[in-house]
Simulated assay, not measured.
Amino acid sequence: MDKKHLYREKKQDPSLKLFVVLSKAYRSISDQVAADIRKRGLNTTEFGVLELLYHQGEQPLQKIGDKILLASGSITYVVDKLEQKGYVSRKQSDSDRRITYASITQEGSRLLEEIFPGHWEQIESITAGLSEEEKHETIDMLKKLGTYADRLSLENK
């Protein structure tokens, strides 16, 4: 089989097509969500940290990165910026001086309560191209795909 024929076959492979479509959809949606968050005076990482602290309460800095998929060095920088804005405070652990906790301040909570409804509306608008049933089906399929990919990465370690 020549290379040109092999390329055409790969190009028509639904696995490759799924990857490309999924990547493009994610980028398009992410760009719109990021633009919406920027309009509200934050970047996506700051918003993610505030949302985590708002919903889950005080968190060790070391765990925040894992929960919002950010490198630990970046977390310190983001928490510094949020602390300067008055949205987050830090507290040393009483039992282990190596652990520092971050928590959302009243000002941070007020900000999130103010901007989240509009942000939620924007996400609803962005995803309005699917019916409620299609959204649920897509969620289930993407969870299945993600779980399978996670299993593969664990097997390959």
Rank of each mutant, 00 (worst) to 15 (best):
K4A: 04
H5Y: 04
E9M: 13
E9N: 10
Q12H: 01
D13T: 13
D13P: 10
P14S: 08
S15D: 06
L16C: 05
L18W: 01
L18Y: 00
F19C: 08
F19V: 15
V20E: 07
V20C: 02
S23D: 09
K24Y: 07
Y26T: 13
S28A: 13
S28M: 12
S28T: 02
S28W: 02
S30W: 09
S30K: 03
D31I: 01
D31E: 14
Q32V: 00
D36H: 04
I37C: 00
K39D: 00
R40D: 00
G41P: 01
T45Q: 13
T45G: 05
E46R: 09
E46W: 12
F47Q: 10
G48M: 08
V49C: 11
V49Y: 00
V49G: 04
L50I: 14
L53D: 13
L53S: 05
G57E: 02
G57A: 03
Q59N: 04
P60F: 11
L61Q: 03
K63I: 11
I64W: 12
G65C: 12
K67Q: 09
K67M: 15
I68N: 02
I68L: 04
I68Q: 08
L70I: 07
G73H: 01
S74P: 07
T76I: 13
T76A: 12
Y77Q: 14
V78L: 07
V79M: 00
D80P: 04
D80I: 08
L82D: 13
L82A: 05
E83D: 10
E83T: 15
V88N: 03
S89Y: 01
R90N: 05
K91N: 05
D94L: 09
D94C: 02
S95C: 07
S95G: 03
R97T: 05
R98G: 06
R98Y: 01
I99D: 05
